[in-house]
Simulated scan of single mutants.
Amino acid sequence: MSSGDFVPALEQFLGSSAGLSPATVTRLTKQWSDDHAAFQDRDLWESDYVYVWADGVHPKVRLGQARSCVLVLMGVRTDGRKELIALAEGPRESTESWADLLRDCRRRGMRDPELVVGDGAMGLWRALAEVFPQARHQRCWVHKTRNVVNALPKSAQPGAKKALQEIYNTEDRDHAQKAVKEFERTYGAKWPKAVRRSATRPMNSWRSTTSPPNTGCTSGRRTRSTFSTVKLRTRVTRGADSPAAALAIVFKLAESAQARWRAITAPHLVALVRNGATFRNGYSSSAPK
């Protein structure tokens, strides 16, 4: 998309009646940059995020570095509401870039979340171990499913995808383990590589005693669906005249999408998780500490 196409794309985002002249676009991106700067400097002491999703969003414009993307953190508060936490540019695979973002959040008052969900990028997990060592890690099931399915021939992919969905949609760990064994029995003989990539390794961290499945872990296991409302609209950054403008627009997209995020399932249980209640098969087995 050329610079001449940038204004129509923004009009689609803001509404066709926005009347965006080049001067208006310049003013808007400057205002959005200022809004983003204020957002990144706000106090987080009163914001308790129990669950956090972390992912990289790739705008349709080259940022400051050749392999940069926008690092995004979203969280679930103790009342079950989803909220944008932070957004900054950085190399997606870089431990230091994730650590810089996480350190800044801790500096502003963010405490260790109970669980962080992300893709397979090792930089994120190393940074979490350094900055928020109490947080448990969960690999995104959408990314995991994609990796497993890609190790299979196309003819076997639909059935394997459905079988993996049965694993992560089960109501408790026991049923999930049975579904894992069924997956291994069905696909292990012909495609051992896919089984090695399957759900057996994530089972150790999935739905442990302090993470009840019906508090929103069903959606929390998926970073891709969580970020889709932002990712699907980053095309409006094509034609942005600078990395700063692209970053400002992605921030405004995320802020706009936030208004339509639904609270997680059974939000009343999130505070119990934060307070130390233990759960088995989705039900509390001990009082909060």
Rank of each mutant, 00 (worst) to 15 (best):
S3E: 14
V7Q: 09
L10Q: 08
E11S: 10
Q12E: 14
Q12H: 06
L14F: 04
G15S: 08
S17C: 04
A18Y: 02
L20D: 08
A23D: 13
T24K: 13
R27C: 09
Q31I: 02
S33P: 12
D34Q: 14
H36T: 08
A37C: 13
A37V: 05
A38H: 11
A38E: 15
F39D: 13
D41N: 15
R42H: 09
L44F: 05
D48K: 05
Y51T: 14
V52R: 08
H58C: 14
K60V: 02
R62F: 01
V72S: 07
L73S: 12
L73R: 10
G75P: 15
V76N: 12
R77Y: 03
G80H: 10
E83G: 10
E89R: 06
G90F: 04
R92L: 01
R92P: 10
T95Q: 09
T95Y: 04
T95E: 11
E96A: 07
S97P: 06
W98M: 06
W98H: 07
A99P: 03
D100C: 00
L101D: 06
L102Q: 02
R103V: 04
D104Y: 09
C105T: 12
C105N: 12
R107F: 00
R108L: 05
M110C: 07
M110Q: 11
P113C: 07
P113W: 00
L115I: 03
V116C: 11
V117Q: 12
D119G: 11
M122P: 15
L124F: 02
A127K: 01
V131A: 07
Q134T: 10
A135V: 06
H137P: 10
H143C: 06
K144V: 04
T145Q: 05
V148P: 06
V149P: 14
L152M: 10
S155Y: 02
A156T: 04
A156I: 06
A156Y: 03
K161N: 15
A163M: 05
Q165E: 15
Y168D: 14
N169Q: 12
T170H: 10
H175F: 03
H175Y: 05
A176T: 09
Q177T: 12
K178W: 00
E182L: 11
F183C: 01
Y187S: 08
G188P: 05
K193E: 10
V195E: 07
S198G: 15
T200H: 09
R201C: 09
W206I: 12
R207N: 14
T209A: 11
S211H: 11
G220C: 09
R221W: 00
F227N: 09
T229F: 03
T229P: 10
L232I: 14
R233A: 06
R233V: 03
T234F: 00
T237L: 04
G239A: 07
A240F: 00
S242W: 02
A244Y: 05
A245W: 06
A246D: 11
L247F: 05
L253H: 08
L253P: 14
E255F: 03
S256D: 15
A257W: 04
A259T: 15
W261Q: 12
R262S: 13
A266C: 13
A266V: 10
L269G: 10
A277F: 02
T278I: 04
G282R: 04
Y283I: 05
S284Y: 00
S284M: 02
S286I: 00
S286L: 00
K289P: 09
